[in-house]
């Protein structure tokens, strides 16, 4: 059996848990493959990696990956991840969250983890709705689109995850899509390398709920719209502003070195306190 599987199966719990529960054409499986290849390039031991998740479609990922895994309450992946990282700073913590998990229920955890600059690699899979519960609108649903709870069209503007993370103080912010999968491998590998809070937003199709409610076609059509609807930063600079409307820019938006990680600061504080030196 194993001889016919792609080499990523080494990182999977392939004997017990496969095939996975995600719908045909769901992009989360592609993101999972990308994470595996990015971790593979880092040459880390699988026992040194902690994968945390909350609740949702994306948060099923720890069930399938053979790292140390923690499947926690809704939106609290970063809170549990922060605790684990402080308890054992040698762990490499990766948090995988969906858009609703990261921005609605866990929105506060996201911005405050970015403010603290805790060393967690956060991967947010954005499929524009709550897929697991039947396609309700989420904070990233584009205005005017239809979901189970917006039958007359979404009336609120959506979050821009990358701008939010940049404003909150993350050190590495990038956006990729599951269509541009080779690029996504590099973006996630870049995020894993950063000693600080890094965010990668991944645009993924949800053909079962969001695609069906908006008549976007099957998984292939939605992948094609990801190809045609996104541009690189270089293309965005060349395009006149009127042609840029409706296109999503992908690539690395922020990659800075000037901020120290939280566990490094915490270790220094512990040393100071143990030595009896007051901070005053």
């Amino acid at each position: 059996m194993a001889a016919h599987l792609p080499y990523e199966y080494i990182y999977l719990r392939y004997k017990k848990k496969f095939p996975h529960v995600w719908c045909p054409g769901c992009g989360i499986g592609i993101v999972m493959g990308s994470i595996i290849r990015a971790v593979d390039t880092m040459n880390w031991d699988m026992n040194d990696i902690l994968l945390v998740s909350g609740i949702g479609c994306t948060s099923r990922m720890p069930v399938y990956l053979d790292f140390n895994t923690l499947h926690t309450t809704h939106g609290r992946a970063l809170a549990f991840g922060t605790g684990a990282k402080l308890a054992n700073p040698a762990l490499k913590v990766i948090a995988v969250m969906g858009d609703g998990d990261a921005l609605a229920i866990g929105g506060n955890h996201l911005i405050h983890s970015a403010r603290r600059n805790i060393e967690i690699t956060t991967i947010i899979v954005n499929n524009n709705n709550y897929g697991m519960t039947g396609g309700q609108f989420s904070p990233t649903t584009p205005p005017g689109t239809f979901t189970a709870t917006t039958p007359y069209g979404m009336m609120e503007p959506g979050f821009d995850i990358c701008s939010l993370a940049q404003g909150a103080g993350a050190v590495y912010v990038a956006r990729g899509t599951v269509y541009h999968v080779m690029e996504l491998d590099k973006l996630i590998a870049g995020a894993l390398e950063k000693p600080g809070f890094s965010v990668v937003e991944v645009l993924a199709p949800c053909p079962t709920n969001f695609g069906r409610a908006n008549r976007l076609g099957d998984a292939v059509k939605m992948m094609e719209s990801l190809r045609d609807g996104t541009i690189t930063q270089v293309q965005a600079e060349k395009l006149p502003p009127e042609e840029r409307v409706g296109k999503t820019v992908r690539g690395v938006f922020l990659d800075r070195e000037d901020s120290e990680g939280y566990t490094a600061r915490y270790a220094r504080l512990c040393e100071q306190a143990a030595g009896g030196v007051s901070g005053k």
Binding site: P6, Y9, I10, H20, G29, I30, G33, R37, D40, V181
Partner: peptide, 27 residues
């Protein structure tokens, strides 16, 4: 192979590193 969401497609001769890992016998 990379765009398959279900890990159902494999291409032989993937990378040398992958081949080495495959031969290590994790099965």
């Amino acid at each position: 192979a990379r765009r398959c969401p279900d890990f159902a497609v494999s291409v032989y001769g993937h990378t040398r590193k992958a081949e080495e890992k495959r031969n290590e016998g994790t099965d």
